[in-house]
Measured scan of single mutants.
Amino acid sequence: TYYTVKSGDTLNKIAAQYGVSVANLRSWNGISGDLIFVGQKLIVKKG
């Protein structure tokens, strides 16, 4: 599943929405910090 980042989104918010961990979101998307951008597509695997 792909999720497109919207204004106001955070990794924590997206992780909670999908029932996954922030660590997994980072791993699946090659993100090291907490910086995400509006319009960015993130890979999300269902929890």
Rank of each mutant, 00 (worst) to 15 (best):
T10D: 09
T1F: 14
V5F: 03
G39L: 03
Y3G: 01
I31C: 03
D34G: 07
N12G: 15
V44W: 03
D9G: 01
Q40P: 01
N24Q: 15
K46M: 15
N24R: 09
N24E: 15
V5G: 02
F37W: 12
Q40F: 04
L35R: 11
L11Y: 03
K41Y: 09
A23T: 11
G39H: 05
G33F: 07
V44T: 06
I36E: 03
S32T: 15
F37M: 10
Y2C: 08
T10Y: 04
V5Q: 00
Y3E: 02
G19H: 11
I43K: 08
Q40T: 06
A16Q: 12
V44N: 01
A23P: 09
N12A: 13
N29M: 01
V44Q: 01
K13D: 12
T1K: 09
I36G: 02
G30H: 13
K46E: 15
V5K: 00
G39P: 01
I43C: 07
G39K: 04
G19L: 09
L42D: 00
G30A: 13
W28C: 03
G19C: 09
T1E: 13
K46V: 15
G47Q: 13
L35Y: 15
T4Q: 09
Y3I: 08
I43T: 08
S27I: 13
A23F: 08
A23G: 11
Y2A: 06
S32L: 13
K6R: 10
L42M: 09
K45L: 15
Y3D: 02
N24G: 07
I31R: 02
F37A: 09
K13T: 14
A16I: 12
A15R: 02
L35A: 11
K41D: 08
I43Y: 09
G33E: 10
A23R: 08
L25N: 00
R26I: 14
I36A: 04
A15M: 03
K13L: 13
K13S: 15
G19K: 11
G47A: 13
V20G: 03
L11F: 05
G30F: 12
A16N: 12
L35V: 13
R26D: 02
K46S: 15
G19D: 12
A23D: 14
T4N: 07
I43H: 07
K13C: 07
A23W: 07
Q17Y: 13
G39D: 07
K13N: 12
W28E: 03
I14E: 00
L35T: 12
N12C: 06
V44Y: 04
Y3S: 02
W28K: 02
L35F: 14
Y2R: 06
S32Y: 12
V5L: 03
I43W: 12
W28G: 02
N12T: 11
Y18G: 03
I43G: 03
R26L: 10
V5M: 03
L11P: 03
S27L: 15
W28S: 03
